[in-house]
Design a protein around this nucleic acid. Structure first.
Length: 558
RNA sequence: GCGCCUGUAGCUCAGUUGGAUAGAGCACGAGACUUCUAAUCUCGGGGUCGGGGGUUCGAUUCCCUCCAGGCGCACCA
């Protein structure tokens, strides 16, 4: 079921296509141009606008306004909601809708309830969304937090847009970083037992490993030292890895992020990697040089060819990733989305090259790069160093500012912009803090509805009759903003840009706060009160849905 | 040196796949509470859309070039 605003758009598009069909020879059209409607930013320009006449003027060899007039003359409205078409400016067609469309939108919201906002752009299509995918060798840091917020919000938005979404965490539980992890664990274990032992420069410096090994040392004493080194390290990894993975899961859960799949890299060794390599070999995409096996990624636009199997015979990270993506492709999704940190952007060409070399369509794989987060406290940048383990962890942030503020801050900027995260502001309970502004709107509505209930005021049946009384500017603007949600969800989904929803939430909250200041609900004249109760009920639903899509709570009291 | 991202109001950022007079929040200044939560609202000043070319009816948006910042450029992940 499409929303009113979408149905009207579809109807106008259809009407325009039909008009152009009739005008084909008159306008010298060679083929049907793409009809795109946009929402004018200027209120006076109506609800939908088209620049068709401007684009067709040249091939038609006629002035744009004349073309516009021809289109208007041939336009028939299948929706019955277009009240007026105005030719404006250089030749824009502005479609003004019957005011009743707003009431239809509100009735729709109240009927759909918490489902309102969904749309159909992704119906019948499946997506595998991979994000976070952090090494389990340490805690999640703030950069992972941004990826987690963006990924989980995007998942909700895509689902609301009709896609069937699977969220997956690729767990790097094999390979070189696990070797380094093992070495680091051994050092920490020996240190915990009082031995002299030094962490290698490229080891994991985090405090978490110190604590983990101290605990193990306390429990098992020196008993493990009698093992040969390989077995000792294996034992330490077997002990530590599940704990680290659980910690990651716990941090994510506290942040409202959940995955359907945890894909372990170790399951790719060696079978899946061998068969992916064999496949590439068979098609001539691999060659041997200096005892290593190289992928001809330059054939697909890469700067240089990449090593897949080292001269030592050990596969590179890329080898596992190729096998992983081969696996993802073969699972038959319509689209694969990866969310990566900015420091991995150089990897995009490589992995797409590998996908293409394996015979997969690289266009199916979309990679969202999430830029870095700069933390500020007291107006100063918080310095972080991966090398020394001085990272601000996700759990610290969530602890400090709460999951709602953290999520909103991560989501309010476009992913491709670097993010300045002001910890003081995120904690502040004031009008400077945008997350409170939005939640406050929801709480205010709940307060009114609560009091209405206490006073025994019934909320009437949702129909146009009660709503037709709402014709002040504030009320109309609020209704129009409510009607936008399905469009916003559709755009955010198609462009894979969750920050659009965060902006929408702020705009809607602003529109409500303005209404609240100007329009009294309780105690107004009875019919007006009835209409406004319906309006704020609808507003509450839309605010709550928007916040839910972002993974942020909608409090009833503040 | 090469690649990707960014450059829009004092600050942080939006900008509807090329449109109409470039927007929001914060900050600053002036106002609005005996009434549903003032964590709110109203009004105001504020701009060479990094610079310069080009494409066209029309460019913040597309192309070229230069400048500045960030991030990458491994047989690390």
């Amino acid at each position: 079921m499409k929303s009113v605003i979408e149905r009207v758009r579809g109807a106008i598009e259809m009407g325009l296509v039909q008009a152009l069909g009739e005008l084909g020879s008159d306008l010298n059209l060679e083929s049907m141009p793409q009809v795109i409607l946009e929402q004018p930013k200027e209120e006076a320009h109506g609800q939908w606008a088209s620049n068709l006449a401007l684009m067709l003027a040249k091939p038609a060899k006629r002035p744009p306004r004349e073309v516009a007039q021809l289109i208007v003359d041939h336009f028939q409205d299948p929706s019955g909601l277009v009240r007026e078409i105005e030719i404006a400016g250089p030749g824009f067609l502005n479609f003004h809708l019957d005011p009743a469309w707003r009431q239809l939108a509100v009735v729709e919201i109240l009927t759909a309830g918490s489902d309102y906002g969904s749309c159909q752009v992704g119906v019948g299509k499946s997506i595998l969304l991979e994000f976070v995918s952090a090494n389990p060798t340490g805690p999640l840091h703030i950069g992972h937090g941004r990826g987690a917020a963006v990924g989980s919000a995007l998942a909700s938005i895509l689902e609301a847009a009709g896609y069937q979404v699977t969220c997956e965490f690729y767990l790097n539980d094999a390979g070189n970083q696990i070797n380094k992890f093992a070495q680091s664990l051994e050092v920490r274990y020996r240190q915990a037992l009082g031995e002299e032992s030094k962490l290698p420069e490229d080891g994991y410096h985090g405090k978490d490993l110190v604590e983990l090994m101290e605990e193990l040392a306390q429990r098992r004493g020196e008993s493990l030292l009698s093992l040969p080194q390989a077995e000792l390290q294996q034992a330490l990894v077997d002990y530590a890895l599940p704990i680290k993975v659980k910690a990651i899961e716990k941090d994510l859960a506290a942040f409202g992020v959940h995955f359907q799949n945890w894909f372990r890299e170790s399951t790719l060794h060696p079978g899946a990697i061998d068969s992916a390599v064999a496949k590439l070999k068979a098609t001539g995409q691999l060659y041997e040089e200096e005892q290593a096996l190289w992928l001809r990624s330059t054939d697909f636009g890469d700067d240089k060819d990449r090593v897949v199997i080292r001269d030592s015979g050990v596969p590179t990270y890329l080898a596992a990733d190729i096998a992983y993506h081969d696996d993802k492709y073969r699972r038959g999704y319509d689209k694969l989305i990866n969310i990566w940190g900015a420091d991995h952007h150089g990897y995009i060409v490589r992995i797409k090259a590998a996908a293409e070399a394996l015979g997969h369509d690289p266009e199916k794989l979309a990679i969202i790069i999430v830029q870095m987060v700069n933390l500020y406290r007291g107006g100063l940048a918080v310095t972080m160093s991966k090398r020394t383990g001085e990272l601000v962890t996700l759990s610290e942030i969530v602890e400090e500012v709460g999951p709602d503020a953290a999520r909103f801050f991560f989501l309010m900027r476009s992913s491709e912009s670097q993010l300045d995260f002001d910890l003081d502001l995120a904690k502040e309970q004031s009008d400077r803090n945008p997350v409170f502004y939005v939640q406050y709107a929801h709480a205010r509505i709940c307060s009114i509805l609560r009091q209405a209930k206490e006073q025994g005021i019934e909320i009437p049946k949702a129909d146009g009759e009660h709503l037709s009384i709402l014709n002040s500017h504030e009320e109309e603007q609020l209704m129009e903003k409510l009607a936008q949600l399905p469009l916003c969800v559709g755009e955010a989904a198609q462009k894979m840009e969750p920050h659009r929803l965060a902006h929408y939430a702020q705009e809607l909250a602003a529109q409500f706060h303005l209404f609240y200041t100007r329009c009294r609900v309780l105690g107004s004249e009875e019919e007006l009160q009835a209409g406004r109760l319906l309006l704020i009920s609808a507003t509450r639903l839309v605010l709550a849905r928007t916040l839910t899509l972002l993974g942020i709570s909608a409090p009833e009291r503040m």
